[in-house]
Design a protein around this nucleic acid. Structure first.
Length: 478
DNA sequence: TTTTGAGTTGTTCGA
DNA sequence: GTCGAACAACTCAAA
C-alpha cells in the first residue's frame, strides 16, 4: 500500500468510528482523510414507502457518526443521489488518491462497487476495500478439499477451529486520528431532505447509533448465560436485539464475537456458545451468498424451482394483514407490521405457515420481510426463508412442517405474546388461545370473542394443508 | 475412491 | 401423558 496524501472514507453499512477496518486503513495510509455517507437513491427510490423505520435509523446513525468524527477533528459529508456516480464525482472533486470502503457481499452492492472501482480507476484513483462485516468471509473457511461448505455444522466447527484472538482484534482509530480532515462545509442532510417521513421508531424505543448499540449490549451481557433457554420464547426478553445494529454496522461484529468467545472461554456455558453460534450463522449465510448469488432469485437447489406454488392472493393477503385465524401467526405479523421486528422463533413459524400451509412462494414472503424488517439483511433473510421452505442449503427437510398450534403451545404456553398483539383474544383461557376456534359458542361468549366476527376463523385447516404441501413437494422429487 | 456418519430450530402415529 | 420410531431417502464432509 502506497502512502497517499489524501483519501476518502466511504461509509455504507459500517456506521461507526470505533473498530472500523476501512476507516483504520484509510487513516493509516493517508495524511488527510475525508468522510462521506451517500443516501443512495438507487436503494432509497426502491423502498415501498416514504415512511421507513430503517431510513430513520440510518439518519440517526449518520448524525451520530458525524458527531463522533467531529469530536476527533473530522466530520462527515452527506450526499443524496446515486452512489455509483456520486462517489467518483466527490473523489475527483476532493482530489483524493484513494477511496476506502468495507466489503459488501450483496450482488447489487458488488456490482455497484465494481462500477465505482472502474470509474475511479479511470481517474487514476484507487478503490481500497476491507473485510469488516464478518469474522470470516469468502474463502477463509473451506472444507478439506478446498471447497466452500454448504452444511452449517461442519462449517461452524471449522470456523471455531480457525478462530483465534487475532481475528477478533479491534481496529484502533486513536493512533492516526490527526489525519481526519474537517468536512468541506454544508450541513448534514435530514430525513426530510431525502424525502422521508418520521416513523414510530422513537416511540418503539429503538435508536440508531453506536451509543444505543452499546446500551443494548450492556443490557444483554447479564442475560447471555440464559440465552439458550430464553431465546425461543417471544414473550421473554431473550435475544440481544442487536440485529438492526449489526445490519447498519453501528456495532462491530468483532466486538460481539470477542464478547461471546471470551464468555465461552470463561465458562459462560451454553448460553454464550449458542449466541456465538448465531454469529457464525451470520457469517455462514454471507459466505453462501458470496459463492451462490443465484439464491437471490431462485432456490439454492435449482430442482426446487420446479415447484408450482399456487400463490393464492387472498391467502397471502390474510397472512400479510394478520388475519389467518391462527393466533401465533397473526400476532407475529402484527409485531412486524407495527414494529419492524419479529422474534426469530416467530419468523420460522410465520415463514413455515406461508409456505407450507398457504402454499405461497417463499420469495413473496422473503420480499415482504425485506420490505418490513428493520434488521433486514439479504443474506440472512434469504437463508432463513429457504431454510423454512426446504429449498436451501442445509434446509429443513420438506416433510418437517411446523404445526402452528403445537408451536404456539410450546413457545407461548400462557399466550402472553398472543395477548400482547391480539387484544381481541386477551380474555381467552390459555388452553384455548392457541386454537380459539375450538371454543364452544358459550365459551366464545365468555371470552368476549366470537370466531368469525371478532377474530377470523382459520383460513386453512392445518392437517389438510400439510398434506397438500407434501403433495406439492412430491412432484419435485421425481 | 469408497465408505461412513451426520445433518438448527419437527410432527405424527401408535404403543 | 409419554416415548420411540417413522417420515424418505439425500447430500455433504471427512476418514
Amino acid at each position: 500500500m502506497s502512502q497517499s496524501e489524501t483519501a476518502l472514507m466511504w461509509f455504507r453499512r459500517d456506521l461507526r468510528v470505533a473498530d472500523n477496518a476501512a476507516l483504520h486503513a484509510a487513516l493509516k495510509a493517508a495524511r488527510r482523510v475525508h468522510c462521506v455517507f451517500v443516501y443512495d437513491t438507487a436503494i432509497l427510490d426502491r423502498l415501498p414507502s416514504r415512511s421507513d423505520r430503517r431510513v430513520e435509523f440510518i439518519v440517526q446513525s449518520v448524525d451520530e457518526l458525524h458527531r463522533g468524527l467531529s469530536a476527533l477533528g473530522g466530520g462527515l459529508v452527506t450526499l443524496h443521489g446515486p452512489a455509483q456516480t456520486e462517489i467518483p464525482r466527490l473523489a475527483r472533486e476532493l482530489g483524493v488518491q484513494a477511496v476506502y470502503a468495507n466489503h459488501d457481499y450483496e450482488p447489487a452492492a458488488v456490482a455497484r462497487d465494481a462500477a465505482v472501482a472502474q470509474a475511479l480507476a479511470a481517474s487514476g484513483i484507487g478503490f481500497m476495500t476491507r473485510k469488516d462485516q464478518v469474522i470470516f468471509e469468502k474463502d477463509e473457511v473451506l472444507t478439506g478439499s478446498g471447497t466452500p461448505y454448504s452444511v452449517f455444522t461442519p462449517y461452524k466447527n471449522a470456523w471455531l477451529k480457525k478462530l483465534e484472538p487475532f481475528f477478533l482484534k479491534a481496529y484502533p482509530v486513536e493512533s492516526h486520528v490527526k489525519n481526519l480532515a474537517p468536512p468541506a462545509g454544508g450541513r448534514l442532510l435530514t430525513l426530510t431532505d431525502i424525502g422521508f417521513k418520521e416513523t414510530n421508531l422513537r416511540a418503539l424505543g429503538i435508536a440508531g447509533g453506536s451509543a444505543a448499540a452499546q446500551e443494548l449490549l450492556a443490557d444483554f451481557l447479564p442475560r447471555m448465560a440464559r440465552y439458550r433457554e430464553a431465546r425461543d420464547f417471544p414473550s421473554r426478553k431473550g435475544p440481544s436485539y442487536l440485529s438492526v445494529h449489526l445490519r447498519f454496522g453501528t456495532i462491530s461484529i468483532r466486538e460481539l464475537a470477542r464478547t461471546a468467545w471470551q464468555a465461552v472461554r470463561d465458562g459462560g456455558g451454553e448460553g454464550a456458545a449458542t449466541w456465538l453460534s448465531e454469529l457464525v450463522w451470520r457469517d455462514f449465510y454471507f459466505m453462501i451468498l458470496h459463492h451462490h448469488p443465484h439464491v437471490v432469485s431462485g432456490a439454492f437447489r435449482p430442482a426446487y424451482d420446479a415447484i408450482r406454488w399456487p400463490d393464492d392472493e387472498a391467502l397471502f393477503a390474510a397472512w400479510r394483514e394478520a388475519r389467518t385465524g391462527y393466533p401465533i401467526v397473526d400476532a407475529a405479523m402484527r409485531q412486524i407490521n407495527q414494529t419492524g421486528y419479529m422474534h426469530n422463533r416467530l419468523r420460522m413459524i410465520a415463514a413455515s405457515f406461508l409456505v407450507k400451509d398457504l402454499l405461497v412462494d417463499w420469495r413473496l414472503g422473503e420480499k415482504y420481510f425485506a420490505d418490513h424488517l428493520n434488521d433486514f439483511d439479504l443474506a440472512a433473510n434469504n437463508g432463513g426463508w429457504q431454510w423454512a421452505a426446504s429449498t436451501g442449503c442445509d434446509a429443513q427437510p420438506y416433510f418437517r412442517i411446523f404445526n402452528p398450534v403445537t408451536q404456539s403451545e410450546k413457545f407461548d404456553p400462557e399466550g402472553s405474546f398472543i395477548r400482547r398483539y391480539l387484544p381481541e383474544l386477551a380474555r381467552c383461557e390459555a388452553r384455548y388461545i392457541h386454537a380459539p376456534w375450538t371454543m364452544t359458542p358459550a365459551q366464545q361468549q365468555a371470552a368476549g370473542v366470537v370466531i368469525g366476527r371478532d377474530y377470523p376463523a382459520p383460513v386453512v385447516d392445518h392437517a389438510e394443508a400439510r398434506l397438500r404441501a407434501l403433495e406439492l413437494f412430491k412432484a419435485v422429487r421425481n
